[in-house]
Design a protein around this nucleic acid. Structure first.
Lengths: 215, 215
DNA sequence: AACCTAATCTGACGCTGCGTCAGTTCCTCT
DNA sequence: AGAGGAACTGACGCAGCGTCAGATTAGGTT
């Protein structure tokens, strides 16, 4: 399915090649964590990986291309976010637990991948379809599942007919992503990590069910 | 208050200087709208402004410095966002109107300034205090006002004691900012601009008051 | 009008990073 | 061991960076 890893000039990469490629990606990731995206240079990544710039270009067209690769990797791993919402019950006490777990999983996923995610966010906001698609891939699992849950509640008459499940779900997920991206910001605002979570869960619960949670 | 505009080497800029400086900022803004932040070069901005790179460096230390200037300008204008929330009533029908107006104002402000805002967002997420401060400046007016409203409802017993007004307000504002930044994204998701607004308003209302709106 | 001075602009330079290519080194298989 | 493909890199021409010394301009003065 994945198709073999190929060099820029189309050759199939072998064991050694894969290794350097991977090392380059790791170094890029580290670089992204420590310096502004605008300042990440091919030459720095290559130096950090103990190789030459020319080698970098053997595996990636440019920094952006490598970032996309990194993002793709992350998106695959991000598929596990589905577990946070799949098959959850959105009524009564289980709903509160579902909201809490969703928030928790989301925030920690974001914290773990914040460097790449903010680049993906930027790319998507700038209208780059490739980044946009990746962002979708990550958020879609959660959004779709939430959308379905809301639709179901709606069909049972527990949620107002006028709301658009997709809009609500999308907005809630966007909220989670935004708060996650600026977690540090909240802290210096006087909001502690610990009190952030339950309040986010509350908002999620309110959004999905339209009601206050029973804890 | 503002202190005169100064060149990089500390001289006070006169009429002509101000004009070119302004023109450079305009061209930068246009550039930011049309190409990825990473690809915006001093030389391009200078060319577009019909001047030389050296002139650019007379007024700004680098691209980032100029972007900060642009952002500062925008933040000043963004102070008008306060009007969207100041002195609003968050009970009954007026609450729904307040939520609607807030969403509406927020989205259009963001749409108007999307290019600079996404760079500010990036800078803030990367931990750059200067960008972070500007982001704060814009969001604070709204957040603080919302926080106060929630506190007030809380003191009247209309909102649960356990919620943290600051956390809720901050999250809601983050949501608005995030949705605004990815407005186009929502459309290709199958959510129309027109149905996005009332649903966002609903979420804001739910978050602030804890109750469904009476329209 | 001719002149002066401070403000403003720019050509030119050395430097760093980009992206490519031809040639070298390394590995693997026979 | 040696053939051949995989992997790496030195070197190059080009583009953008940031600086400086010197040219140009505006606008006031005599």
């Amino acid at each position: 399915m994945t198709g073999q890893v190929r060099t820029v000039d189309g050759r199939v990469a072998g064991r050694r090649g894969q290794a350097t490629r991977q090392k380059l990606l790791e170094c890029l990731s580290e670089m992204l964590s420590s310096s502004p995206y605008r300042d990440v240079k091919v030459i720095d990544v290559a130096r950090m990986a103990g190789t030459s710039p020319a080698t970098f270009y053997q595996y990636f067209p440019d920094v952006e291309g490598a970032v996309l690769e990194l993002a793709e990797e992350m998106a695959k791993e991000g598929a596990t976010l589905t577990d946070l919402v799949a098959g959850r019950t959105w009524t009564g006490k289980p709903a509160w637990a579902a909201a809490e777990d969703l928030v928790d999983g989301f925030l920690s996923f974001w914290r773990k991948n914040d460097a790449i995610l903010r680049v993906v966010d930027l790319g998507a906001a700038e209208g780059d379809k490739r980044f946009y698609k990746i962002r979708m891939k990550i958020l879609n699992a959660v959004t779709n599942s939430l959308t379905d849950s809301i639709k179901e509640l709606q069909s049972k008459g527990r949620v107002d007919k006028t709301v658009s499940p997709a809009a609500i779900a999308g907005s809630l997920v966007a909220m989670l992503a935004a708060v996650a991206a600026h977690q540090k910001g909240f802290q210096s605002w006087g909001v502690k990590q610990a009190e952030l979570k339950p309040n986010l869960a509350l908002l999620v619960h309110l959004g999905v069910t339209g009601k206050k949670p029973t804890k």
